[in-house]
């Protein structure tokens, strides 16, 4: 089966002045399954945008292979199945959204009548049908971003490559975009998104890949990427240091707040800690299990 994106041993080296070289992507191998939302994560300069540019044939790989639906990216027809939203999209300001979208639909191979219809549908989907006839120069940043998303949607793409799709959107716009991406995934399309908003990615993505300095450091479902360690979070009243020191016989992480103390401990030590608290007469306010968030995992992996 032809996967939407198949990257094999991809390396991209930039030549710098005075014969120096910089490796932006280093031996990267990823497979993006069909019908999923794929999160492509990494700190600034990790090589995300370079990889996206190679997938779209804006840049040539130094070595390795990239295939989109089984075809080499050098073939322009490969991009017939792809919709792309660049980071901070810029469009010709004098165009109206309906004109811009019709043009992109025509470039995607639709006839002029179909292009107009596809443009209207995309504007409806992104919730900006009311601004169809307003020149892009007069739209706010968030609305321009939505025009960008609509632009990526025209031409019925099977693969959407979105670079920071929720950047510049207000909470309503973000919620709308998130629901739209889920709807697109449910329709069987593949969404490849690069984002820094990890809270959103965590709830949205089926598969994530984390890059650091051009290398793949984690790949799998968000659950796979997060540490499997679960901790107990135990909350009690604010206590003095000499009492706290009596609890430090266990590997316990203690945070003192203004009116309470929070302790984090591994499950095997939780019972011991609770017994020690009972002996010291410390009341138990709250106890809950806690798992590493994707953001914490990202910080751990990207550090």
């Amino acid at each position: 089966m032809n996967l939407p994106i198949q990257i094999e041993n991809l390396t991209k080296t930039y030549k710098l002045p005075r014969g120096r070289k910089k490796t932006a992507v280093d031996s990267l191998s990823i497979e993006v399954p069909e019908g999923v939302i794929f999160g492509f994560l990494g700190p600034n300069g990790a090589g995300k945008t370079t990889t996206i540019k190679i997938i779209l044939d804006f840049l040539k790989p130094t070595s390795g292979n990239v295939r989109v639906f089984g075809r080499l990216t050098t073939d322009p027809l490969t991009r017939r199945l792809v919709g792309y939203l660049p980071e901070q999209p810029y469009f010709h300001k004098f165009l109206k959204p309906i004109e811009l979208l019709s043009m992109h639909a025509a470039l995607a191979g639709l006839s002029s009548r179909e292009a107009r219809r596809a443009a209207e549908a995309a504007l409806d989907m992104t919730g900006i049908a009311d601004y169809a006839e307003t020149p892009i120069a007069k739209l706010s940043k968030g609305l321009t971003q939505r025009v960008g998303i609509a632009q990526a949607l025209v031409g019925n793409p099977k693969l959407l490559i979105l670079d920071e799709p929720t950047s510049g959107l207000d909470p309503i716009g973000r919620r709308h975009t998130r629901n739209l991406l889920i709807r697109l995934r449910d329709e069987g399309r593949t969404v490849f998104l690069s984002s820094h908003l990890l809270g959103e990615v965590e709830n949205l993505c089926d598969v994530v890949a984390v890059l650091r300095a051009g290398k793949l450091v984690a790949y799998g479902t968000p659950d796979d990427v997060r540490s499997s360690n679960t901790q107990f979070k135990i909350q009690t009243v604010r206590v003095d240091n000499h009492i706290l020191n009596r609890l430090r016989f266990l590997e316990v992480n203690i945070e003192c707040g203004a009116d309470s103390t929070v302790m984090r401990v591994d499950p095997q030590n939780a019972y011991e800690l609770l017994r020690a608290m009972e002996k010291l007469g410390l009341p138990l306010i709250k106890i809950e299990t806690e798992r590493e968030s994707l953001e914490e995992a990202f910080l751990r992996l990207a550090a």
Partner: peptide, 10 residues
């Protein structure tokens, strides 16, 4: 950067 959305098309 108006080039990118265009050459991302076929």
């Amino acid at each position: 950067r108006t080039l990118y959305p265009i050459i991302a098309r076929p």
